[in-house]
Structures are given as C-alpha cells and as structure tokens.
Write a protein that binds this DNA or RNA. Structure first.
Lengths: 116, 116
DNA sequence: CGAACCTTGACACGCCCGTGATAAGGTTGA
DNA sequence: TCAACCTTATCACGGGCGTGTCAAGGTTCG
C-alpha cells in the first residue's frame, strides 16, 4: 500500500506528528483511517501537506487564516456579508488605511522573526 | 460638524474607545484626524463600525478574519495560492461548491478600481 | 510474546488577540 | 484658567494558537 502512517508522513513532509494531528483538527488535511484507527496518509494528502507548508511560509499566514478562507469558500452568506462590508470601505482615502494595515501585519511578522 | 470624537463614536456604535483604537490599528476603520490629532468619526465610519460589529457577532468571526479577507481581496498572488490549495481538496466529490468566488471577487475588485 | 508502532488526553509554555485600566501629557471651550 | 476632553504608551489578564512531551492504552508483526 502506498499509505504512510503518521510518523512516516511527518518524515516526508517536514511537519511533526503532533502538528499533523493539529492540522487534521483544524479541518485542513484529514487522512483516511485504518480499521484500527491509524491515520493513513496517501499521496494526495502528502502533497497537500507539503503545499500547505509552502503556502503558510510564503505568505506568512496561519492555519486559522486558511481555515477561514475555506469557510469563506463554503459559506455563501458569510462570503457575501464580508464582501459587502469590505466594499463599504472601497471609496475612502485609501492609501492611508492600506498602509496602516500593512504596518499592523508587518509588526506581527517582525515580532515572530525577532522571537526566532 | 457631523464628525464625532472617539468617546461619542463609542457611545453611538457600541464599541469602547479602546476598541475603536484597536480596530483602527487592525486597519479596518481609520477615521480622519483633526489638526491636533483627534480622531473624527463621520457618518460613513460610524456606519462601518456598526455593520462590522454586526458582522463579527453574526458569524462569530474575529477582526483578524476580516483583516485576512481584506488581504485576500487586495493580494492576487495570495488569493490565487490559497484558492489553488483549497481546490486540491475539492476532489472529495462532496461539495465542489463555491470555488469560483475568488475569481468573482477579483472581477469585482477590478470593477471598483476602474470606477474610482 | 514483545518491541515498536499507533491512539487520545492532558500539562506546559510562549506568543498573540481582545479588552480594560492607568499614566503622562496636549487641546478645547466656557 | 480649568474641567473635560483628547493623544500615545504601558501593564494586566484570560483565552486561543502552535508546539513539545508525557501517560495510558490498543495494534502490528516477526
């Protein structure tokens, strides 16, 4: 079988086994289970785990961010409400707001880097 | 003058003055400033604050969620990368429902920019 | 059988989020 | 002038996130 157990999957994806369980709990990558309940990661799951890791690193976003994007994609009411709210800001003196927001996001990343 | 100072704005929107500053720092509602630096909330800002509060309560989402949605709407690279990742899970034929929303968002954004 | 896996649950830790409080100082208006 | 506003900066605190680690117990397989 081409399905890996959790520690094998961890070894080939760069996640820890602990984080694999956490990612599953966040609803982002949920592998099949064996009859005894063992997680079985197939090639698609392994690929999703690798690209997820790349995605988080490249844009400095969090699992919750991806989970929220997923919720946006699945919930039309939510999507439309958020969209409507965002549009209500679209015609204000925009450059200032955008810069503030950037600084806010940036500071979070700087703090993260400083802690490393 | 139809512009309110921060405590007046707090009184009519249900936020606290502290949270109004926090919301501004998150880049979501940034009022004009007087010559002396006082925040001046006009009718549009007050309305945005009220609807933001309603949005957060109705869907149980956070300021960071809205900030992330804003980032998604503004950053095409991020939007496409997240969309691509989400689509890689849609192969469980359960619901492949709304994977076109990001493209829809992008088009609307382009229309807004064109109109401005 | 027994070593080496796997499971869930929990404690722990450090950082971030949402929020209030307080301090030190500048602005406004009767 | 002076009370009542406003500003930024800071401390505090409970809860959540990301992560390691450990315990208690089930599974696999030579």
């Amino acid at each position: 079988m081409d399905a890996l157990t959790i520690n094998e999957a961890a070894a080939t994806t760069g996640w820890s086994a602990r984080m694999l369980r956490y990612v599953e709990q966040a609803g982002l990558v949920a592998p099949e289970r064996s009859a005894a309940g063992y997680r079985l990661y197939g090639a698609p799951e392994l690929q999703r785990l690798r690209t997820l890791k790349e995605l988080l690193g490249r844009f400095e976003i969090s699992l919750s961010d991806v989970a929220f994007a997923r919720r946006l994609a699945a919930d039309a009411d939510l999507r439309e409400a958020v969209q409507a709210w965002l549009q209500s800001e679209a015609r204000r003196p925009e450059h200032v707001e955008a810069q503030d927001w950037l600084r806010f996001e940036q500071q979070k990343h700087e703090r993260l880097l400083a802690a490393a």
